[in-house]
Design a protein around this nucleic acid. Structure first.
Lengths: 209, 209
DNA sequence: TATATATTCAAACAAATGTTTGAATCGCAT
DNA sequence: ATGCGATTCAAACATTTGTTTGAATATATA
């Protein structure tokens, strides 16, 4: 029956698909490539998942599990410390090398951002929303309770931009300043800089009406 | 001879190609679509340009003309004023509606950033480099002449990130905070905010070692 | 006008790719 | 061992897409 439907092939397909989708994006990924890496027949994707689109959905559910995120900062700490802790955690997630699944997660996220599909909603909900909630909580603590919504929104957006920056513009920076060291080689510097810059920016927009 | 090689078809192809490449990106664009809009035969692209790739190169040369950029700020103004002028000009270029070719320019740039091709070098050189040079000049004036290279690079990168932010993350923000007004409807607010945030950030990283 | 050159066009080609098919094979319960 | 559903597989299919072809047409030159 359905007891043990040869988990091997299905799992191998899923693992290969994560790799390929993260590597090349949905469009450029081919089911032949995926099946090749999984040592499975071309028809396997359709048999086990029902098609390329359905396989992609399965990959997203695997890569962005539900209820995985907990606040990484403690509300009893100072807002500045919380911001540092939050940004440090985020930076390591995004830029640390060799953290397999986590890196693939952001790679897939990045590809969806560049070319949104119907599944971007799902990814935002699972990957971005909880982190955005925590950041907004921290920014609110820094800017104060009476901060206009517009300034809150801009400021949160700004800090996200500072963090995602190198993820998005790496190809540009590579060409603009080739001698620049990679973020990964000076992570602490990078984090420290972004924290300073963010705090400075936040204080500036708080003081002015 | 080569005197008047029916400029109409060739130009129509180029115009249609700019539209389609800006709209869908190189991969998703089809020569059939382009030829259709130009009311030309499918073979026209190959006849007039030699192929899809060559057409794309021709589009880039059209969209990113040489020696077009002049510093938009005046070195005799205060650095803060220069930063404001620079960011205002950049924001209007990027976000102002209905500025046809300029918008298409940034759309193509964005697509190349998301999926770099061999032509990204060219685009960076024509579109980014001169603006990056001016920004670096301004940032240097704010941070002072003895600023370490690392801090200069991070800071310039930060400010670029703040400006490109909404261009890159629009699909995310649409889903995160759907009620948020578009940047285009409050351009002055947006520019003012980014200027304040940037200046605050720059001052913060200047003071700390 | 006549000739040559440039341009257009419908059709076909070749390659890539997601999907389907139907037979062969496997695993297991009876 | 036998039979049956689940799984694998090679092959083929259908569609899309960039490109080529060769004839037809237009344009310019002499």
């Amino acid at each position: 029956m359905n007891e043990k439907p040869d988990v091997n092939t299905k799992d191998a397909l899923l693992a290969a698909a994560i790799e390929v989708f993260a590597d090349k994006g949905f469009d450029a990924a081919t089911v032949r490539d995926i099946c090749g890496r999984a040592r499975a027949n071309v028809a396997a994707v359709n048999y086990h998942f029902g098609g390329k689109d359905a396989l992609y959905v399965a990959v997203l559910r695997e890569v962005f599990p539900k209820d995985e995120y907990d606040f990484v900062t403690n509300r009893s700490d100072s807002p500045a410390d919380r911001l540092r802790a939050f940004l440090a955690a985020l930076a390591r997630e995004i830029y640390e090398r060799g953290n397999g699944l986590v890196a693939q997660r952001w790679a897939i996220f990045l590809r969806e951002m560049a070319k949104p599909s119907a599944n971007l909603d799902f990814i935002v909900q699972r990957q971005v929303q909880p982190r955005a909630d925590e950041l907004r909580d921290i920014v609110a603590a820094i800017l104060g309770p009476n901060t206009p919504e517009r300034i809150m929104a801009f400021s949160c957006s700004n800090i996200w931009a500072l963090m995602l920056d190198h993820l998005l513009t790496q190809p540009i920076l590579d060409r603009l300043t080739p001698q620049r060291p990679a973020v990964q080689t000076s992570m602490e510097d990078f984090i420290g800089h972004v924290v300073q810059f963010s705090l400075g920016g936040l204080h500036a927009v708080r003081e002015n009406p």
